[in-house]
Computed example of a mutant assay.
Amino acid sequence: MDKISASELVLHRVLEAPLERVWSFIVDPALRSRWFMSGASDLRLDGQLGLTMKHHELSDRAVPTPAEYQADIDASWTETITLFEPPHAIGFTCEGGRGGEVIIRLYAESERRTRLILVHSGLRSDADAINFGGGWHAHLAALALRLVGSSVEDFWGLLREGEEAMQDELGKQGALRPGHNIAIKVPLHRWEDTVSFYRDRVGLEVVKTLDDSIGLRFGEMTFWIDRVPHQSQVDVWLELFSDDPDAALATLKSPQRDELEALTGVVGHWTSDPAGTVLLVRRETGS
């Protein structure tokens, strides 16, 4: 399953070809030029991988090059090879390391089928994830077609499809939804009266009791009343769920406040809203 974030891409593809054939399409410049980019290379650890931008030649029918890519036609450069384990793995810098590092690993699933896992780490932003992720989506789709002898009708269409997929995935990951818990932090001397108020007067059902907290059923949520020594005022803490807490924090543009309380067995972050209300942005259990 692919994993997309603003800092890293992990793409899985099952290719209908033996491992050695897939490897040849990665290291042979003539074959690599049919799905990615080629150029004179010194294939060894710390060697150079030559790349020439000829994406206008990747489609098998006449397809116009989008205006934003026309200035890059025939641009050439080299990247440093950071990993070389033929015929199973190759790694190289991206934009001289400014755009991170790419590692491609191959695993034989059968005599005729190969799993390719591409990891592009060190991304700088959502824009990088969309740009590089869309590119890798298109290039790997072209590779899959070339390996079985099929044509690539419209590379630019594959690129647009990939960019849209990256945008959609990043949007989902940064999305937020209500959690299951609300907590109020109550000074020690007011805790018992506050519990009695909600339990006995409001009539909320007690669902869990801890040493310094009591949980009450609040519709579909649990309302926690936490006893806090050395506190003079009541604070409200809310829970929000996100599949990608880091992306969600970026969406909120809120400060990371993980010093507030240890998070044990939880993937997420403490933050706060402009009024100072504390928020726990976390993955839902099991997600």
Rank of each mutant, 00 (worst) to 15 (best):
T271R: 10
V281N: 02
L19N: 01
S33L: 08
L11A: 07
R112T: 15
L15R: 06
A141R: 13
S24N: 14
A62K: 01
A71P: 00
K54D: 15
G50W: 04
A250I: 07
A141H: 11
A141P: 06
H139Q: 11
V63N: 04
R217W: 00
A138H: 03
T114A: 06
G47K: 08
D244Q: 11
H139F: 12
R34N: 00
A275D: 13
R190W: 10
F25C: 12
L31M: 14
Q231S: 15
A67Y: 11
L51P: 00
A6H: 09
F132Y: 15
G203Y: 04
W191L: 04
I103L: 14
N181L: 09
R105L: 08
R124D: 09
E109A: 09
K54M: 13
T52A: 03
G133F: 05
P229W: 08
F36I: 11
R283K: 11
T114F: 07
A262M: 07
S24I: 03
A129T: 05
L204D: 04
P29Q: 08
S150M: 07
L176T: 07
L176G: 05
K172Y: 12
P87G: 00
A165N: 09
E85N: 03
F241N: 06
S110M: 12
S7H: 14
D258L: 13
F241I: 06
R61W: 01
S41D: 07
A247S: 09
S287T: 11
L158H: 04
L145D: 10
E16L: 10
L15C: 03
V206R: 08
R177E: 11
L45H: 13
R146F: 04
S24G: 07
E8W: 03
Y198E: 03
D60P: 05
S125E: 01
L45V: 04
L188E: 13
G149V: 04
S150P: 00
E205M: 11
R21S: 05
H56E: 11
R61C: 13
D28S: 14
D42Y: 10
E192A: 14
W237P: 03
V278E: 12
R217I: 10
P255M: 12
V27P: 10
D226E: 15
G91H: 01
D258H: 13
G39P: 00
E284I: 02
T80P: 02
A17T: 09
V281H: 01
H189D: 15
E20V: 14
